[in-house]
Design a protein around this nucleic acid. Sequence first.
RNA 1: GCGGGUGUGGUGGAAUGGCAGACACAACAGACUUAAAAUCUGUCGGGGUUUCCCCGUGCCGGUUCGAGUCCGGCUACCCGCACCA
Length: 819
Amino acid sequence: MSEHRYVPSEVEAKWQEKWEASNAHDTTHDPNKPFYYCLEQFPYPSGRLHMGHVRVYSIGDVVARFKKMHGHNVLHPMGWDAFGMPAENFAIQHGVHPNVSTHDNIAFMRNQQKQLGLSYDWSRELATCDPDYYKWTQWIFQLFYERGLAYKKKAAVNWCPECSTVLANEQVIDGECWRCDSEVVKKDLEQWFFKITDYADRLLTDLEQLQGGWPERVITMQRNWIGKSTGAEITYGIHGRDETLTVFTTRPDTLYGVSYVVLAPENELVQKLIEGYAGAAEVQAFIDSVRKASEIERTSTDTEKVGIFTGSYAVHPLTGEKLPIWIANYVLPDYGTGCVMGVPAHDERDFEFATKYQLPIVPVIDPGHQDALTEAFTGEGRLINSAEFNGMANTEALTKIVEVLEQKGIGKATTSFRLRDWLISRQRYWGAPIPMINCPSCGTVPVPKDQLPVLLPEHVDFGVKGKSPLETNDEFVHTTCPSCGGAARRETDTMDTFIDSSWYYLRYTGKGDGTQPFDTEAANNWLPVDKYVGGIEHAILHLLYSRFFTKVLHDAGLVNYTEPFESLLTQGMVVLNGAKMSKSKGNVVSPEDIINKYGADTARVFILFAAPPDRDLEWSDQGVEGAHRFLNRVWRMVENHIPILRKNNLKADASGDAAKKLRMATHAAIKKVTEDIGTRYQFNTAISAIMELVNAIYAYPEGADAGTKAEAIRTAVILLHPAAPHITSELWEMMGETSKLYALEWPVYDESALAMDEVEYVVQINGKVRERLVFPKEATKEEVESQAIASEKVQALLEGKSIKKVIVVPGKLVNVVVG
RNA sequence: GCGGGUGUGGUGGAAUGGCAGACACAACAGACUUAAAAUCUGUCGGGGUUUCCCCGUGCCGGUUCGAGUCCGGCUACCCGCACCA
């Protein structure tokens, strides 16, 4: 009977053109409406979309469209995290300039996004590789520099040989490069750092603000990454020398148990200590061997602890005892002071080390038994062998001993963080040049602001090993010093691309007057982002960096809040047969194929329906078929009722039983879908609620009130619109409606429609369901109780037993407790 | 080792402490059809003496009139951190 078949390609192209031509998705600024910022992490323009992209965008689009219909001004932008190494590697292999391949990729992917019917305000699109954008990335770099948050230092840094560039700590995963999985090695280089450690405390405490809005595990991961420890720094004298050494410890209460002191092999003091020592050569050989070890070998708990005596002795700050100074591989150079006091009796690592090298093990906290220690005792207890502190609880001694040290000026309470400064230099081409100049007489000088951006030169030699590509362009390198006018050299490193993505969400809100990176008023108006949707893989990296940027920009007076993302939705992966889709596994399902075969609406509905957003989604071709079947079912539902849907003077009369039931189903669906999308962000159950309504409409008896049916159909189409915008727009038009569905007001459910005249009670005996009885909704507790007990079924089961208690939950159940 | 999360039919998944398995997928049966597809209808956790009853949400225990849900312990898997003193 249906002449007019559902052809997704036609319907989708039609509506995409209409929306584009009418700027349907431009951001509104109605002062009477609340403002809502819905943001999905912008993609790297890799070439084409994968299913993971389709999933994030589908989720974001449902939220954005729902909020618009729900009476909000919605900012829903899209852009490109466009700098990065793949484009540069592609250039090396195929000779295509990154600027060309990147823009080609962007054009292709933008087109794919449009095919998905995503409601972006394209007028705000940005790409981080555009000079108009990276000018401001450079501006922000200089802001950091002016505020003492960008500095250069020579350090042993993480070097990825495959990418031939350095990496930040966060970008080293299990000793391997986050991007290419090559083993990372240490290299001594002078590099630029951002002083994120200055913000460690605030990055930690502000996590509290995010409770509730962020997944607990992301908060935990950040907390662990920042890794705050409270303890003390204690200064030891060195026997026969003027120098001192300072250790960091979380256990100053065990100070009397120190039997040796250990330095990291890299510690500068080591070289002084071994000068003139007979065993210096051996020590040096040891240091070299440790430094050769990879990051994995060095930091794994499985690695055997090895060390060597330096020939020098430290002086115990309270007892004056001589303590041998060792160096060992288990002491890290860049945590705490790079120097540890060894308390073998109460620290597992020290115990292992002391046992191996036969160093004294002196218990100073009563382990509760007389036997010799076979392992470190790390529990709590009372102090022993600790002079005047004997008998004191160790928790109390912890502060008391620090007090004594403080009075003597040889110790202080302090905290230590695991977070390290952010290494931001990259020896690569396709990134924002660091806007600094090195002058032989003036030192490091910023490029004057009016000369920004420092443009990337087009012609460079990409493939020279061990050289930043920018170094190969003489014209770029040679410049004059802004301060003295003399010949000077530019910085030839570019910035970590995570810097580009640390502020892009601000740029979307407004470009401002050209004196700063974004419009402060607009940014304050829209931010913090109300819903940020992205992958869990950024739990530390991007999310930590962006939080850091926001705090710095706040301190500089550029924004008036301290956290950028109020609420975070981390979507799970799209997997096939339990494995992440990847080219190498050959298990990739391409979005193009799905869109071509079924249309974007089907892809969206399937993805939203198949799993809750934060869980991994198992791809299922049959599931896609099911989603498509559902849309066809909706199509036929409308098509077969055009006459009653077009009669707009048709009044609904829900007085009959069937009509009353359908009206209830309609309003229950409105309630459920509104809550699921608007507050629970559980799109799978929202879709299932719409399916239930559609099923109820199909089951509606012939001849029952048509107006009620029309209302139900119209509602189902509206509720489905955020998930499947094209087909619903077409159906809306087929119904003879002239309004824009996307601009329609979201329906409000009628509480009274949900109230039933009669309620079914479950009657339990000792918690087991034995009977179901229907009562009028106004029946009192007493009536329900007595009638439930009086019922035939219950009476039969009560024979020979006595009623101990009866619980009545109004509107729900009766539980008769018998003995 | 530490921290976090998850365990429910053949599958994806539903269930403010109140009828476990909504909604789908798959499977099976039927209707329509010459036939198929599409569509529609029905069955669909296990077992039994089958109008009814018993068992069942990883395992053991607890709280409660009532536990998938709360508490304690265990176990398996996943994720993060991992010699951070």
